[in-house]
Design a protein around this nucleic acid. Structure first.
Length: 462
RNA sequence: UCCUUUGUAGCUCAGUCGGUAGAGCGGGUGGCUGUUAACCACUAGGUCGGGGGUUCGAGUCCCUCCGGAGGAGCCA
């Protein structure tokens, strides 16, 4: 049977029944005849206050070893607390040190550390308030994502992690090979991939979308939720080389339906977090960013703004702001432009649609104007793009034409094209960066602090 | 990949005009009958990121390498 956790214990009423508590010491406050310990076991951000009087067995010697970071077993009874920061506390009858933490060496102190420093001790940072809260938030958010799609009858689909399609166009790929790098087999001066593990060049996936479409065009509505890899030399607070992405794909659905799902989805998971993680959200709101809760509440209440790319450009042209990148129809919207639209003009999430075809991927459905495609980006204040999606081109001839225009090889996409040859349907989908959502919900500034072990350009220490 | 910035005690930082180092927190010791960022006193702790140069003298100026951070691009 599992031990009772602090999350439940602190909600109990005082009682004479002896309980056992396991956890790690966060802080110790000693007086002459007694001490206070704060114990955390990861089940909640809250600590259990334990009171130890000097008449318990081996008080002196054991208190010496009871230092920040040590793991302990406490036995005692729950009593009303005389202090005002907690309603109950544990009156300890015996304490056992399970594992010591030498205070001269233990890197976590009972004080605030910088996030940069904590990244250097990523194996210990989940023992801090912030990273414990991030971990619990991440857990709840994962569950919320599944529960949203499951309630709507979507099928959870595992897309392959290793892929042979080298032309997905979403970014630089990590190559996967078992070829001996110090002696690569060649054939007429070129690398001989027939000798490689799969017999051809292979990489880690940059998106499960193309495979997702094949299952959507069989099962109706599907979603993927798994790791994704980009070998970009990105060096920002919003990029990782390994991250998790949610990609729903919906058959018999146009861009309108796609936007509706995206908006409903975001509101659902935000609402879920506010309901299920009140203590952790309260911590983020107090210690990290005092606007996060109010922002989420507003987003849940209000409709997202929806504008076309063309309207967005006109809005930017009217703006009395000096943008570093001049605005002109046809350009990619820059971070500063997206921020202006979502933070200054609308002050809430904005869905921008119908981008010029030249700045978007080949698979997006062409509009009748022949200039724009049925793409959508969901922009949120502070973060910018949180979702990117589109209605897919379901017309075989048009899709082949787009592939050729972009100087790609239709034969590389033979199976993707066959979806359009056999029982084609209009379908749509989008991609959501999981860690970016955690950033948005928690107010954490750097994406490296919302994933357990961040992998970024030139950095993989754990 | 580009631009900017930064590297000083275990941690967070200060260090003026070039004259070889300081605070707070943390640690240790002692004190305190209810603390909760506990408090009070004392105390230990530094090859100033590495290498080279200028100078009588470099934490400080110059060159170079390495690490961290922020911004841009790419995107989720």
């Amino acid at each position: 049977m599992l031990n009772k956790r602090i999350k439940e214990i602190i909600l109990q009423n005082p009682s004479n029944e002896e309980i056992v508590v396991y956890g790690w010491v966060r802080t110790k406050r000693e007086s002459k005849n007694f001490s206070f310990l704060e114990i955390n076991d990861g089940s909640t951000i809250k600590n259990l206050q334990a009171v130890l009087e000097n008449n318990i067995p081996n008080y002196e010697s054991i208190m010496q070893k009871t230092t920040t970071g040590a793991s302990v077993e406490l036995k005692g009874v729950l009593v009303c607390s005389q202090g005002k920061n907690q309603s109950v506390e544990l009156k300890v009858s015996s304490i056992k040190i399970i594992g010591e933490a030498d205070p001269d060496q233990f890197p976590l102190q009972k004080k605030r550390h910088s996030f940069e420093y904590l990244r250097e001790i990523a194996h210990l940072r989940p023992r801090t308030n912030t990273f414990g809260a991030v971990a619990r938030l991440s857990n709840a958010l994962s569950f919320a994502i599944h529960s949203f799609f499951q309630e709507k009858g979507f099928i959870y689909f595992h897309n392959p992690i290793i892929t042979a399609s080298d032309c997905e166009g979403a970014g630089e790929m990590f190559q996967v090979t078992t070829l001996p790098l110090e002696n690569i087999p060649t054939n007429e001066g070129k690398i001989d991939y027939t000798k490689d593990f799969f017999g051809k060049k292979a990489s880690l996936t940059v998106s499960g979308q193309l495979e997702g479409e094949t299952y959507a065009c069989a099962l109706g509505n599907i979603y993927t939720f798994g790791p994704t890899f980009r070998a970009e030399h990105s060096n920002t607070t919003r990029h990782l080389a390994e991250f998790w992405m949610v990609e729903p794909e919906i058959a018999f659905c146009d861009l309108q339906g796609n936007m509706d799902i995206a908006e409903e989805f975001l509101k659902y998971i935000f609402k879920y977090i506010l309901e299920k993680c009140p203590d952790d959200m309260d911590f983020f709101n107090t210690r990290i960013d005092n606007t996060v809760i109010a922002n989420l509440q507003n987003i849940i209440k209000e409709d997202f703004a929806r504008i076309t790319y063309t309207d967005a450009v006109n809005e930017l042209l009217k703006a009395k702001v000096d943008f570093e990148y001049p605005v002109q129809w046809g350009i990619n919207l820059q971070a500063e432009h997206e921020k202006y639209i979502t933070e200054i003009v609308y002050k809430k999430p904005v869905i921008v649609t119908d981008y010029p075809k030249d700045i978007k991927a080949f698979y997006m459905k062409l509009n009748d104007d022949n200039k724009t495609v049925r793409a959508m980006d969901v922009l949120v204040p502070r973060l910018g793009e949180i979702i990117g999606g589109s209605q897919r081109e379901e017309n075989y001839t048009k899709l082949v034409k787009r592939i050729e225009e972009l100087k790609l090889e239709p034969k590389d996409y033979w199976w993707y094209l066959e979806l359009r040859k056999f029982g084609t349907v209009p379908h749509s989908g989008f991609g959501l960066g999981f860690e970016r959502v955690i950033q948005f919900v928690s107010g954490m500034q750097n994406i490296r602090d919302v994933i357990a072990y961040p992998r970024t350009f030139r950095s993989i220490d754990f």
